[in-house]
């Protein structure tokens, strides 16, 4: 499924666990960015309950500041937002952490922007509105491909 061009498997799993510093606590970390607060409000508890370490931001600048502080395994971002465009955000994330997988969610799903974002190494593309199960599936695929699966 993925068009991810640079996806080295294997070593990342350890790197991730080490980075989080919790031995045996290899919880996949997720950052959600969407300027529609409702998306954050619903995705964050959903992922937390599913056993993920999840943070959610509706302000692109705050999200950017946060990714500069630490690495996330998965970044889920909207494409079209006030202030900072999602493409720019994911570009910065990929520049900082090439092995972070980015999932794009957007209500303005046009083929053109979708193609462009795939060129920047997006893991997958989910059109809004989407089902909770759909986004969870995509995250699980990331985990599988990255060897992040717990148990």
């Amino acid at each position: 499924m993925t068009d991810e061009p640079n996806s080295p498997n294997g070593p990342d799993a350890q790197a991730t666990a080490a980075e989080k510093g919790g031995p045996g606590k290899a919880r996949t970390s997720i950052l959600v960015l969407d300027d529609e607060a409702i998306v954050c409000k619903r995705l964050k508890p959903f992922f937390q309950k599913a056993g993920y370490e999840a943070e959610a931001y509706s302000n692109p600048a705050e999200a950017l500041a946060r990714v500069q502080q630490r690495r996330f395994d998965v970044v889920i971002t909207d494409l079209k937002m006030e202030g900072l465009d999602g493409l720019a955000f994911l570009g910065k994330v990929k520049a900082l952490y090439p092995d972070t997988d980015v999932i794009v969610i957007t209500g303005f799903a046009t083929l053109e922007t979708s193609r462009e974002s795939f060129r920047k190494g997006v893991f997958d593309f989910v059109a809004k509105p989407f089902k909770l199960a759909e986004i969870l599936d995509v995250v699980r695929r990331v985990e599988k491909e990255r060897g992040l699966t717990r148990e």
Partner: peptide, 9 residues
């Protein structure tokens, strides 16, 4: 409750 949708939707 199964869907994530926003104002734009």
């Amino acid at each position: 409750g199964d869907y994530i949708f926003d104002r734009q939707y």
